[in-house]
Design a protein around this nucleic acid. Structure first.
Lengths: 143, 143
DNA sequence: TTTGTTGCAAAGGGTTTGCAGGAGA
DNA sequence: TCTCCTGCAAACCCTTTGCAACAAA
């Protein structure tokens, strides 16, 4: 999402176009892996928005489907920009931390089978996938 | 896991059999849904272990594969007893909160297909499934 | 001008730590 | 006896809140 596009998106949902929102979207955009609030804060040039502003806006972004958050293994919340507001998942490289957005959802079939097996009606699900990205696999193979 | 079995399990991994551990396992066992530390605390008869002891032991239980934790939508950590140390998932009822342990993993196929598509080598994954349990579906249908 | 946003400081609240006393093996 | 565990209190630290000043529309 370019700078211009971010303005349009903000307008489209009735959010005012502010400096804080533009730089926040840009920082999320520029990272290839999910960031903590501290990491976001450190990447913002001064004068930068305060932490409360960062939290408040990230929450808005998530509501709009522009970003997602999850809690990492150190119990810290991490935020990442989504390229689509459709339902999808991500895969995280455990070595270089890179995160790749996956097209669509690979679980549709498995879940409808599950419904028949356990009797529940599935309404939603969350999936975190971890692995090794192609580059890190190559790097390991060369050793 | 009966009281006796819990003693055996504790012994087997070199953990001392203490009152705190026995009652903690019993409380987790008795609940049909994941509990917060506060909920666990409230269910313990006095004299009860302090919160630090609860946290410390839950962590040990998770290390041993006897329990799992996840962060709920209010950002609070919840703990649940696992009936197996094998890889598996749970489904949570969004209405009555009941949690059911699922046998095995429904995603094996989907993940190996995913590997071919995105080039990552999948090493592990987490899956939270939410839905309506059979009873809650019936209750809703009657309205 | 009207409404939504930000900044600051402070509070909130779940979780962890340090250490001395106590219970298990 | 020796080691591990628990209790207590305090510290930690991420996150939220309140409110006045400010910027966008």
């Amino acid at each position: 999402m370019s700078c211009h596009a971010s303005k349009d998106s903000l307008h489209a949902v009735g959010m005012k176009v502010t400096k804080a929102r533009e730089v926040l979207l840009r920082v999320l955009e520029a990272s290839d892996h999910p960031l903590t609030v501290d990491e976001i804060y450190d990447r913002l040039a001064q004068p930068r928005p305060g932490r409360p502003t960062i939290y408040r806006n990230l929450e808005r972004f998530i509501q709009e489907g522009w970003a997602e958050s999850f809690v990492d293994k150190n119990q810290i919340q991490r935020f990442l920009r989504c390229g689509t507001t459709e339902h999808h998942h991500h895969i995280h490289c455990e070595k270089c931390q890179r995160t790749t957005e996956l097209d669509g959802c690979a679980m549709t079939k498995a879940l409808s089978q599950l419904e028949r097996q356990c009797g529940y009606k599935v309404t939603r699900h969350q999936l975190q996938i971890y692995g090794l990205c192609p580059e890190c696999q190559k790097a390991l193979a060369l050793k």
